[in-house]
Amino acid sequence: MKPAPFAYHRPRSLAEALDMLADLGEEAKVLAGGQSLVPLMSMRLASPAHLVDLNQVPGLATVDVGAEGVRVGALARHSQVEHDTASYDALPLLRQALRQVAHPTIRNRGTTVGSLVHGDPAAEMPAVLMLLDGSVTLNDVNGTRDVAATAFFKGPMETDLRPGELAVGASFRRPPPGSGSAFVEVSRRHGDYAMCGVGALVTASEGALSAARVCLVGVGTRPVLLDLAPALGDGVVDDEASAALVDAAIDPETDIHATADYRRHLAHVLVRRALAEARTAAEARAA
């Protein structure tokens, strides 16, 4: 379990990093927290010829809270985002989800943007980005582009990031006033990838829901974002209608930890739980 030979690069500026990535193209992988990449390399499941280590690039370990929402830089560790009070006040869902990302030691090194770019369909943060109408900012030597979350995640470990591009940050947008959120999941052990996880975001006013969305992980090849508006009637989510929507949207698989049937069952249970928690949170914020 030692990586194959690779060239190590340590750019000192964003411009230098982008130049390197332009030169190296598909041969290069970016190292930020390394919590997924380094084990993959050690097991020789990934053998990039070049590793571009971002950690000396200034200005990327940022968490900025603005009127639009929260913007997270490429080197912001999960724990930095998790413990950022202003981010929590703006978007409680960030902390709600991050507390379920692996373990504190992994969150101390792993980066939120890195998790997004890794694109694991069981990971929490891609679902959060989708629920919060977020986007990823991709830079290359020619410029910059923002890709909406819904377009960014393409399949298991597959995103819209192109060779030569660097994900410099991600933006999570503020939901409308009166919103509440929750993230619930079931994993085999505390901190493991979820067999199924559900993030929920609802908007309520005077006890009635006006909007409800969920995003499910672990039950498809990418996070499954679902607008439950069709199941909303009289300010509540109709469980049966919601279940039908969920059933139609997910496509879980069987693996050694859980059958597809069980995952499907969890999806229904967790959607109900997440919606209930999110509604409670919305009411608490309104109070």
Binding site: R188, M195, H257, A258, Y262
Partner: peptide, 11 residues
Amino acid sequence: ISPSELFHLRK
């Protein structure tokens, strides 16, 4: 026994 297996035993 895993939760998935217990779920199937219940079914």
